[in-house]
Amino acid sequence: MNTPDPTSDDEFGSEPPGPDLEAAEYALGVQDAAQRRRSQTRIETDPAFAARVAAWEGRLAGLFDGIAPVAPPQHVWPGIRRRLGWPAVEGARGNLWQSVGFWRAAAAAAIVAATALAVLNTVREAPPAVTPAAVARAVTTLSFDDGTPAYLATLDTASGAILLVPVPSAPDAEGRVPELWLIPAGESPRSLGVVTTDKAHTIAVPAELRRAMTAGSTLAISLEPVGGAPQGVPTGPIVAKGNIAST
């Protein structure tokens, strides 16, 4: 440092701070309540001061790396939605989340990608014939417990295919993998295989299960060991589910 200051510590400590020092003290968070409120008023009214604060916040931001992340409890997210005046849990209609048109558009985009992939993947015999016409078929939203969508499933009953599009989310902290289940009304879950949280899947439904691709059945995602549930029955928690709706 090449800015020696001849004044004693106590003298420097008793001067009122200049604007840059005040900005630094605000950013560091050492001011008492009254000083802090004054600085906040100044941030709102004095753009040059606000820029100094932002610069200091940027200088100190590297310190955040020293704070361990902690997952907040489940009820926090619905609370945020409530404070924003949104339904805490999504209702049946009326917004983008459950806008079938929106999801059909998303599913269509994914189908274009999936079909292109299937065409490229010439090794696979008879990729499921999912065509844009299938987009008009029923879209099932698989939601988390709090009502937010986790996956969108578009069912093509003609070819027996399900296009599953995840709403991207973080992988399970315990390393478990999502597995898709088809649950015909009144029956036990049937595995449709392991999926991911970050890319679209086209799933061929076994012929004997295609009868269950209908209203009244449920699609569900459970968390399973890598490789899927060993006995063909869910072993982990069901994290998302949705009822297949009629078209």
């Binding site: 440092m1 510590d9 420097f12 020092l21 630094a24 003290e25 050492v30 001011q31 200088r59």
Partner: peptide, 30 residues
Amino acid sequence: ATYDELAARIGAPLGSVKSWIRRGLMQLRA
């Protein structure tokens, strides 16, 4: 922590704590 709290924690005069932190901040910026 505020200046007051920091001074109480380490048992040093408030003016000294302010001065140490302010000098530290200026040194950091430089």
